[in-house]
Write a protein that binds this DNA or RNA. Structure first.
Lengths: 158, 158
DNA sequence: TATTGTTATACTCTATAACTATA
DNA sequence: TATAGTTATAGAGTATAACAATA
């Protein structure tokens, strides 16, 4: 049979007519950047009016599922540096979504908890994110979705 | 047989022991953000000393494969807004990697070209990116790589 | 009127170094 | 000595609005 096609049989994957972008389209880094950008844009369109951003939701979700977690562990879990976490947690406490309580054993640390307002925000956000995710994955069947997650997981080396 | 496992059979995908992150790990948005971050970090570690960043390389690669392209088309092809493209192209011209020439038919526009220095930079960057990409995809076999690209492409709705 | 390139601006994310108070 | 949280700061990506020159 013929030669192996570069990717999916398309010689020009750019949306711009007459513009070649095969080189970039063949790079995971580029694909991830574009896919990530598209998802971020839809996320903001879906939850922007709540004042929710991807990072803030990640914090809320982690604090909810790990009540009493401290900032260092939280940051390490999400790939966010301690220093960059501070203003984010500040934002959440200012908006009364999260509480900093005294840590039971370590007086250097805070124990983070979601409060009532935070729980309500989480519920509303999760609901919207469900629709948002469904929109992003709409062209993939169940098997493809599993496969995508599996492959993205294999990619992660962090 | 038994119930369907949520994802890949792991109940806790966090790297932090005792920390639950199933909710986030089940979101494409989160997976893409983390994968993208890991790839960006390795890219900078691999090409940072060249003064190369993912966006700059994307510009160079596109100008190389589309000599004479104008800034608006370039930006649209890469998902970068015209206004944000200006300082990036400025940086490339200042470093003598790219030239702005008069557009043959449209006096409002510039025609962008890679010059000698730009070609050399492109060659060196491509070589390093090859190794970088291989590193990122090392845990995926050829079939998995094809599949990943196919699925990422299906995801893109931009 | 619409489009190209541009300026200005603001927000967010990320990275680094250094400080304090506790461990 | 090391760690948790913090402050300060700088770089980079992204978004919007508005303008001059040209189509």
């Amino acid at each position: 049979m013929g030669k192996i096609e570069p990717l999916a049989g398309r010689s020009d994957e750019s949306d711009e007519p007459g513009i070649r972008s095969e080189l970039l389209e063949g790079l995971v880094g580029y694909r991830l950047r574009r896919a990530n950008g598209a998802v971020m844009t839809d996320f903001m369109a879906s939850l922007g009016d709540l004042g929710m951003r991807p990072v803030l939701f990640a914090l809320i979700a982690m604090i909810r599922d790990n009540p009493g977690i401290n900032q260092t562990t939280l940051g390490r879990s999400l790939g966010i540096q301690r220093a960059n976490l501070v203003p984010l947690v500040n934002e959440l406490t200012t908006r009364h979504l999260v509480e900093r309580r005294a840590h039971p054993t370590d007086r250097r640390a805070f124990a983070l908890y979601l409060n009532k307002t935070g729980e309500a925000m989480f519920a509303e956000a999760v609901e919207r994110i469900r629709a948002h995710e469904e929109r992003m994955l709409s062209r993939l069947d169940e098997g493809e979705r599993r496969k995508l997650f599996e492959l993205l997981n294999k990619l992660r080396a962090d």
